[in-house]
């Protein structure tokens, strides 16, 4: 498999702030790759380095094997879908989409037929004469996508592409983006702070925090085997257990994560270390999530909804298979 984008020890400083701290990352051709992290974690800076809007302070960036430091964005065959879409307000939809073709001096007729074809692909055929201001948020998003795709870039970058859309539209666009990416075979790299979005769309995810990559892996790896407390905290609804708690139950001290569905709950007091009080109960439909307070340590458990779910304030004993504990290093 060809490597589409390769970052080696990429560092970006803004004055005293280290926005990217020696990032190493390889993204394969045709991959749908997500950069996930809280705001200020460096994920957007990383995307902007690949696009060429930011230059790395040090390190090596290669795009399809060619070194890209110092290459301006207009010479990179990489296109971006911006968070605020950045549609040109003075141009109508078709001229927005055909902008890069116009710059490449493609003859007018061909320019418009290509642009129309891409508009058709994003289900906006016939919208060419409208102004961006006359479109809804979802439609603008599609125009931005069409404009970035018309050149058939080697890599498409998406900066929080669905952030401004409402939930229903967001879910629909997630599916469409996924199938579009499969059909075109272009490498998609998208930035998001929404772990659900990253999980449902990406082939692989890089979790960012404080300018570093905490973990790279498939959604399953990230979810089931978080490498650190941060990843477990940020990505999942997993319980993060401190070393003393883990030592008491398994005899070996280390941080560990425990998925809520791996926990069983029985009514009444049992082993003192695992006996606690139900302090919260959230009905989620098919399942109900309860929070049990074990002498200060809180555990979440997910149980099938129904009569078996203990009431708030009742005393329960929790249990889990020690093999369900996933040990982690203690990076915060």
């Amino acid at each position: 498999m060809t490597t589409a984008v390769s970052l080696k020890a990429i560092t970006r400083r803004f004055g005293e702030v280290l926005a990217l701290d020696a990032i190493d990352l390889d993204i394969a051709e045709g991959e749908f790759f997500a950069m996930l992290g809280p705001s200020g974690s460096g994920k957007t800076t990383c995307l902007r380095v690949i696009a060429g809007f930011e230059q790395p302070s040090s390190g090596e960036l290669s795009i399809f094997g060619q070194r890209a430091e110092g290459v301006p964005p207009y010479k990179r065959n990489v296109n971006t879908v911006f968070q605020d879409y950045a549609l040109f307000p003075h141009l109508n939809v078709i001229d927005n989409v055909a902008y890069s073709l116009m710059l490449r001096k493609v003859p007018v007729a061909e320019r418009y037929s290509q642009a129309e074809a891409v508009l058709d692909m994003v289900k906006l055929a016939g919208y060419g004469m409208r102004r961006p201001g006359q479109l809804s948020g979802g439609q603008r998003q599609r125009v931005a996508l069409a404009r970035a795709l018309v050149n058939q870039p080697k890599v498409l970058l998406l900066d929080e592409p669905l952030g401004a859309l409402d939930l229903k539209l967001r879910e629909q666009m997630q599916e469409e983006l996924k199938s579009l990416q499969k059909r075109l075979g272009i490498t998609f790299i998208f930035v998001t702070h929404d772990q659900g979005e990253a999980m449902s769309m990406a082939d692989r995810i890089a979790v960012f925090n404080l300018g570093k990559i905490m973990q790279v892996g498939t959604p399953e790896e990230i979810y089931l085997k978080p490498a650190s407390r941060f990843v477990a905290d940020f990505v999942g609804s997993s319980n993060v257990l401190p070393p003393d708690f883990v030592a008491r139950t398994t005899g070996k001290a280390s941080w560990a994560s425990l998925r809520p569905e791996a926990i069983t709950v029985t009514a009444g007091a049992g082993q003192p270390d695992l006996t606690g009080t139900v302090v919260a109960r959230n009905y989620l439909g098919a399942t109900t999530r309860i929070t049990v307070d074990l002498g200060g340590q809180r555990l979440h458990a997910v149980l099938p909804s129904g009569a078996g779910v203990p009431l708030e304030g009742s005393v329960v004993t929790v249990d889990f298979d020690p093999s369900a504990l996933h040990r982690m290093d203690d990076t915060p």
Binding site: F64, K75, N77, V118, Q152, K154, V155
Partner: peptide, 11 residues
Amino acid sequence: MSAASSAFLEH
């Protein structure tokens, strides 16, 4: 559509 073969636009 004309796909550019290279990662950079050499023209």
